[in-house]
């Protein structure tokens, strides 16, 4: 465990906590993409299936349980508890466009042709595009609640920090993870516009509004 990965995981955790707090506080899931949350749930379930047969550490197990349960809880909040606040008419990104390419990539680029490896690779590719419905929704509405913006920012920082983690692990352990490394680069690139607007507006105390 190095500092980049640890901070990345904390930031990932923070993003989810921020989102739950926002939904509960405002009793509304307005501005949050259900599709993105659904895709993350799919990411976690397909990736952490190894919790039953591959023990890494207590930290690892705890975090896996946290990510799966908290994301499913968000789905519950959006689908059941605060259902009326979520407007499906602005959450229109076609998730097939993310799921299908991820499935194809998983079948071509993986660490071995076993169900576990293919699901793992699928989850990594899927994660790199899972934010798209949320960013698309943001673009349609043109502005967002401060907390939604912080949520997306924390999520972006998480994957960004995994890049130095991979470089660090390559240098210190001589080990490479090309699939996750490449997927992290793609994911971070998707956030670049968002980061730019976050920096120029939110950091200066202005409302998050798209130009």
């Amino acid at each position: 465990m190095n500092i980049f990965r640890f901070l990345a995981d904390l930031s990932h955790m923070a993003s989810i906590v921020i989102l739950i707090l926002q939904i509960r506080k405002t009793k509304s899931a307005a501005g949050v993409s259900y599709k993105t949350q659904f895709l993350y749930a799919l990411v976690f379930v397909t990736r952490y299936i190894d919790i039953f047969f591959h023990y890494v550490s207590l930290y690892n197990t705890f975090m896996k349980i946290f990510f799966v349960t908290s994301t499913i809880y968000i789905l519950y909040l959006m689908r059941v508890q605060y259902k009326p606040s979520h407007d499906p008419n602005i959450d229109t990104f076609r998730i097939e466009y993310i799921i299908a390419p991820s499935a194809v990539l998983a079948l071509i680029i993986n660490h071995g042709y076993t169900l576990y490896e293919i699901l793992w690779s699928f989850s990594v590719w899927l994660e790199s595009g899972a934010i798209l419905p949320q960013l698309f929704m943001l673009q349609r509405t043109g502005e967002a609640e401060t907390l939604t913006v912080h949520y997306i920012f924390a999520l972006g920082i998480y994957r960004l920090l995994y890049i130095p983690n991979w470089i660090y692990r390559y240098v210190t352990e001589g080990r490479v993870e090309p699939i996750a490394f490449l997927a992290s680069l793609i994911q971070t690139a998707l956030y670049s516009d968002f980061f730019y607007i976050y920096y120029t507006k939110v950091m200066q105390g202005k409302k998050f509004e798209l130009p």
Binding site: N60, H111, G112, N165, V176
Partner: peptide
């Protein structure tokens, strides 16, 4: 499986 370093991460 040496390639699958990512399996010890989240």
């Amino acid at each position: 499986n040496n390639g699958a370093v990512g399996h010890d991460e989240l």
